[in-house]
């Protein structure tokens, strides 16, 4: 791992990508990508749109099949023939760019449906857990609403609560703020920041460079389906060794400034 000290690196990796490849027709979405995520780490995946970051997340929980390579989660081959993808997914929460809340269910039921149908949790226990999570993401008063009545930022916070209700060992975030209005991005990022502070293992595909720099333990840079560089935020943002990484960051208006505030983090997403 490029010889840079890495927080949590002394622990066994929880999720490992080993030379994974994925094709869509003639498009090579991922080419032999290898890296690992250790328990308790926040790893941000950055790079231009279409560089394979989101595809990689969907390969992690077997929503996509691989054309080559191997994904190992908690010691199990995620794509093993006859393997149990459902068990893997129960332990891996996922948050989507477009929230994907279930529009026909109330906010509360969106959060309890996983635990009651998959974990066979008693409805009362599931509801208690859901209300606690809603309190945590600052939406305790929205339990009885339907998703359509919520703002984008609120919907995404419910989606985070829905994933957390399964008590996952790891959370996947697929561009969680890309579909949001600028004024609601902060509330979602601050919920994610608090989750990271609690020690949740997180893999985050993001274009929010401030968040990546402030919260990530490790940054992985993608370009055209390849992993082109990885390292701690300081190295990536201030001393990237790969020209393409520097080019990508400068396109985003990043010129190696020091750490900036997470935009709007104080607007209050998280209340304990």
């Amino acid at each position: 791992m490029s010889g840079v000290s890495r927080v949590g690196a002394e622990q066994a990796p929880i999720l490992t990508f080993d030379k994974i490849s994925k094709r869509y027709g003639s498009l090579q979405a991922l080419s032999e990508v290898s890296f690992q995520i250790n328990r308790g780490e926040v790893v941000c995946l950055i790079g231009p749109s279409g560089s394979g970051k989101s595809t990689l997340l969907r390969c992690a929980n077997a929503l996509e099949m691989l054309d080559g390579g191997r994904v190992t989660f908690e010691g199990t081959d995620v794509h093993a023939p006859g393997g149990d993808a459902r068990r893997v997914r129960q332990r891996m929460g996922m948050v989507f760019q477009n929230f994907e809340l279930f529009p026909h269910l109330t906010v509360l039921r969106n959060i309890t449906i996983g635990p009651t149908t998959v974990l066979r949790l008693d409805p009362a226990a599931a509801e208690a857990r859901a209300r606690q999570l809603l309190l945590k993401v600052g939406l305790a008063d929205k339990a009885a609403q339907h998703p359509a009545a919520l703002s984008g930022g609120q919907q995404q916070r419910v989606a985070i609560a829905r994933a957390l209700a399964m008590e996952p060992a790891l959370m996947l975030f697929d561009e969680p703020t890309s579909a949001l209005d600028p004024e609601t991005i902060g509330e979602v990022l601050s919920v994610m920041k608090a989750l990271a502070d609690e020690g949740m293992t997180m893999v985050v595909v993001t274009h929010e460079m401030d968040f990546a720099k402030r919260v990530a333990d490790w940054i992985v840079v993608f370009d055209q389906g390849r992993l082109i560089e990885e390292g701690p935020p300081k190295q990536i943002f201030e001393a990237a060794t790969v020209a393409r990484t520097r080019e990508f960051l400068s396109h985003l208006g990043w010129h190696g400034e020091s750490i900036a505030e997470v935009s709007g983090a104080d607007k209050g997403g998280l209340r304990q």
Binding site: R58, N61, L63, R86, R87, R89, Q90, M92, G93, M94, F96, N98, E100, L101, F102, I113, G114, T117, V118, L119, R162, A163, M166
Partner: peptide, 13 residues
Amino acid sequence: AGQWNAGLALGMS
């Protein structure tokens, strides 16, 4: 398809 993915990602059959 996103609704399918959201359900499957929770571990549903």
